[in-house]
Amino acid sequence: MAEGLHVSLTRAGPLRTIEAAFSVPPGQTLALVGPSGAGKSTILKAIAGLLPTTGTVRVDGQDWQTGPHALPAWQRRVGLVLQGGGLFPHLDALGNVMIAQSTPDRDAALALLAAMQMDGPVLGRRPSGLSGGEQMRVALARALARDPDVLLLDEPFAAVDPPVRRALIAAVANVRRRTAAPMIIVTHDLAEAAGIADACAFIDAGHIVEQGPAAAVLANPASRLNQWLSGQIVAER
């Protein structure tokens, strides 16, 4: 039964300890908002099982972290979009999607790419021949190819120009419509968070300092981080 994602993690690092607890219901999107180095990407990687972490990552009632349902990274059904896309440079666009399918299905991969506005000769190009926006579209299609239980997007719009960014936001909205998997999107842009997320969690120096429904926390910033990001506090951090 779909219960969504419940995360409660602690990771002791050399510089700081990261602690985070939050939930994302099925079909909903949580924006993890915070400045660079706050620990946002670390939390995503911990959910994906890519970093040693203590705590729980409960997905639809099963704890991926410890106990009988504990899973190594490659067995966690996660759709991960890394900063810059993280495409395999030796594979073309279609190959990058098909490698994530449990059984190769060319037509299904083509359909996913088409849903991200990717079709025609561009599918035969390797990442080095694709624009930043195209790479991100392929990465989004690849994230869906595994029929993931959880979608994790790490600053998907960080490295593109504003027009491409608007188109990619539409592509992510399309991703949202195609799956009920809980989605987490990492960003340090409040406008981005407002446009995409159902809920926001503000993270600063490894700790969540404020969280709640997107409309409420963006309208009434309670934490200094939220106030600073929304321009209510003008100060150097």
Binding site: P72, W74, L80, L82, G86, F88, P89, H90, I99
Partner: peptide, 25 residues
């Protein structure tokens, strides 16, 4: 590490990640 992370999140076992991603690169 990013491509290794991508390989794991694509569901490639360590052996498949080695043969399909690391070795060709």
């Amino acid at each position: 590490d990013d491509l290794r992370a991508a390989a794991a999140s694509c569901g490639l076992s360590p052996l498949r990640a080695f043969t399909k991603v690391e070795l060709p690169l």
